[in-house]
Computed example of a mutant assay.
Amino acid sequence: MSTGLGFGATVARWVRRTLVGVVLIGLVLVGGTALRVWQVARIDDYSHADSILVLGAAQYDGTPSSVFQARLDQGAELYRMGVAPLVVTVGGKQVGDEYTEAEAGRDYLVTRGVPADRILPVPVGSDTLQSIEAVAAALHARGLDSTVISSDPWHSLRARTMARDAGLQAWTAPTRTGPAVYTRESQLHGIIRETGALLWYQLTHFSADFKYKGDQ
């Protein structure tokens, strides 16, 4: 009887230790990923590239949302700095929309002084992964293979990871304006969301995209 109780206690102890170990590993994995999201968000790499990639966001009848405008303004600034001779805008459209995100982005960049013949709209993609894969195909078709990504700071690591997986040499110089960075709350929201989205991508190689709070 005592032997059976002792064996049961031993099993229960090992189950508890295993559960604690799994929880600790999960915390380390999540915490480490969140740290990397935060670290890459702070990087501004202005190394010369073949292109500047401005990732799409919501647009309304051709007018970029505040999140999209911040990304586009950064893309225009990178072009003026001579980081790359070509700016790529990307993104499809919702049912009923007249403009794609790529077209709205192109038109906005022209108003910011970027020559129309220096802009390549890629009107494809409803999430980051689809968009980046479409851009990689468009750049490779032109013999180009490097890009600097303009997006929100917290989006940088996932976008860079996807771009490199798609065969591009990619680095980041994110916007420092817009709803994604206005408040501590929006910054924390972005880090948490991107940590989960990056872990999901690394596990499944599918995208998990959600609108930024304040993307309007």
Rank of each mutant, 00 (worst) to 15 (best):
K213Y: 12
P115D: 09
L109V: 03
P121C: 02
E77T: 09
M81P: 01
L157R: 03
I191T: 14
L109E: 01
P85Q: 05
L72P: 03
S151R: 06
W171V: 06
Q130S: 12
W14S: 09
S151T: 15
R106C: 07
D107R: 12
D165E: 12
V124H: 06
A134S: 12
Y99L: 10
F68Y: 14
A197S: 13
S156N: 03
R158P: 04
T172V: 15
V114A: 00
Y108N: 02
R160M: 15
V23P: 00
L157N: 03
E101A: 07
A180R: 00
T183Y: 08
Q94N: 14
P123A: 06
L27W: 08
T63R: 13
G92K: 01
G32P: 10
G4Q: 13
D209L: 03
V54R: 00
M81Q: 15
S156Y: 01
E98H: 14
H155L: 03
L35N: 11
A197E: 03
Q59K: 03
V87Y: 04
V20H: 09
G21L: 03
D44N: 13
L72N: 00
S47Q: 14
V135Y: 01
T172G: 05
T111I: 06
I192V: 15
E194M: 10
V30A: 12
A208G: 07
A58D: 11
D73P: 01
Y79N: 00
Y99V: 02
T177M: 09
L198H: 11
I132F: 06
I119E: 00
P123M: 06
T3P: 11
D50C: 06
R142C: 09
P174G: 07
S65W: 05
A49G: 04
D127I: 07
V95D: 13
V30R: 04
D73S: 12
T33E: 11
L144R: 11
M81G: 09
S2I: 14
G214A: 05
E101S: 03
V23M: 04
V23R: 02
A197D: 05
S146T: 07
Y182W: 15
G167H: 05
W38D: 09
T128C: 08
G32H: 09
A138W: 09
G214S: 04
I52T: 01
H140N: 15
E133D: 15
L198D: 03
E77S: 11
W200A: 11
T10Q: 14
E133V: 06
G178H: 04
E185K: 15
V122G: 00
L86G: 07
G6V: 12
D117N: 10
R158W: 03
G32V: 08
L129F: 10
G21K: 01
L24Q: 11
G26L: 06
V37H: 06
A163T: 02
L168A: 07
Q130G: 08
Y99C: 04
S207G: 14
A166S: 13
L129Y: 13
I119N: 02
A136P: 05
L199N: 04
T161E: 04
R193D: 07
L188Q: 12
A138I: 12
A9R: 13
G167C: 03
D215T: 07
V22Y: 07
T204Q: 10
P153H: 10
V40F: 04
I25L: 14
I132L: 10
G8C: 12
P121F: 00
